[in-house]
Simulated assay, not measured.
Amino acid sequence: MSTTSEGTAVRPFAFEFPESELDELRQRVRAARWPEKETVSDQSQGTPLATIQELARYWAEEYDWRNIEAKLKALPHFVTEIDGLDIHFIHVRSRHENALPLIVTHGWPSSVIALLKIVEPLTDPTAHGGDASDAFHLVIPSMPGYGFSGKPTAPGWNPERIARAWAELMKRLDYTKYVAQGGDWGAIITELMAVQEPEGLLGIHTNMPSAVPPEIEQALAAGNPLPSHLQFTEEESVALEQLGFVYQHVHYAYMMGSLPQSLTALADSPVGLAAFMLGPGLPLIPEASPEGTDGLTRDDILDNITLFWLTNTAISAARLYWENKTPFFGARGVALPTAVSVFPDELYETPKSWAEQAYPQLIHYNRLEKGGHFPAWEQPELFVKEIRTSLRSLR
């Protein structure tokens, strides 16, 4: 790893949360002041009172942060200053020769915790049903303002800047050829890396493609009728219906995109933070039932929310929506080789016709039978198989 100067040094990173902070968290959860029950029988008014109360009870009485903390600490963590900001990342090098470097980017409301289940299968494939030729060196950064990365103190850390920072990070790690992957914000940042075409980036994989034709994206985002001259296949019509629903129910994004600092209550109340992240308009975080859904458990959910709480990053993370000026789903003009995995419970199921238009070098397109917005978290086995298969031609 390059450590040519103190300012650009890659430094080992360690963290510790004292028991007093966990005790305070439990006290705050127990002291929550509850609103009255919702007046409807569904989730149209937000997280149901019974759901968040049960999660809070479990959080205060049974949940143990130390379990996920141990899993995090078992991995090698580093930090390096890029463009004046400390960037935290997990870096696991495979023991297999000729492993392909891969940088994977999380989204919101998630963190590096949502990617932990794929670390061992990707870096040590022979121990997880794969071949040595499937091995990856894995780099998993925390986005600015998220987790253990620094919090920007001035405007400017938008997705384009993060994309450039990720290219600098891979260069600083002496990776001359690598691939990139992402979902949610990670998908946007990964695609912007491909648009910027930094030296060494061979291609990308996305599980939330920005493949919507521009005139359709513009109409949907503005709430306008679709152009009358356009004809759609059945697959495209389904995607349009899904996208229409998304744009009508992204109130959380509008709130963070317009007035993130007004959400200060999320930094003051852990129960408020949890309720906001569990809202029905958010990217498919399941209800807080004992077994969870989509492969997630209550512990999975609370691991992630607790990291936001302990690092006090609810507001610094929300500002990414304020910084963003790029469309969420509109095609960006990616020219590099691109692999697309379509999970059925994603915000929208990308039609192959749109993917072929958006990515002229489409090297892989596959529709999965199950999985949602965070497949590496929800369905890690399926996700790992997709990564191995879809990026094989770029080795």
Rank of each mutant, 00 (worst) to 15 (best):
W65E: 08
L382C: 00
L138Y: 05
R28W: 12
A331I: 06
E356Q: 14
K171S: 15
R332Y: 13
D300V: 04
E6R: 09
M1C: 11
L55G: 11
E235I: 02
A335P: 00
A32K: 01
S390Y: 10
V271Y: 08
A99F: 11
L310T: 00
E16A: 14
R298F: 09
R161P: 02
E349W: 00
L85V: 00
P360V: 09
V179C: 13
A317N: 11
P12C: 13
A32N: 07
N304R: 01
G150N: 09
I301Y: 08
F15V: 02
G107W: 04
N158A: 14
L368T: 08
H251S: 12
N312W: 01
F136G: 04
S316K: 03
L266N: 02
P327D: 13
N304C: 13
K370N: 09
G186V: 02
V10P: 05
Y359F: 15
A211R: 03
A219P: 02
R57L: 05
A376C: 09
T105G: 02
K370H: 15
L22N: 05
W65C: 10
P380K: 08
Y359G: 06
V179D: 07
P12F: 14
W377T: 00
F78R: 06
L230R: 15
T326W: 05
T8R: 13
D23K: 06
T51L: 03
W157Y: 05
G281H: 09
S269W: 04
A253I: 10
H128Q: 00
F245R: 08
F308S: 11
A355E: 00
V139W: 11
R93L: 09
L220K: 08
L201E: 05
D86Y: 04
V119G: 07
I162F: 13
L320M: 15
K325A: 10
I204H: 11
R332Q: 12
K71I: 05
D303I: 07
Q361K: 15
P141L: 10
A274L: 15
I68E: 11
D294F: 14
V340R: 06
P109K: 07
E349T: 14
H91F: 11
H249D: 06
K117W: 11
W166P: 01
H88T: 03
S289V: 00
T311Q: 06
P214V: 13
H229W: 11
Q248N: 10
L100G: 05
Y321I: 04
L302T: 13
H91I: 01
H229R: 14
G182W: 03
K171N: 13
R388D: 13
H373Y: 11
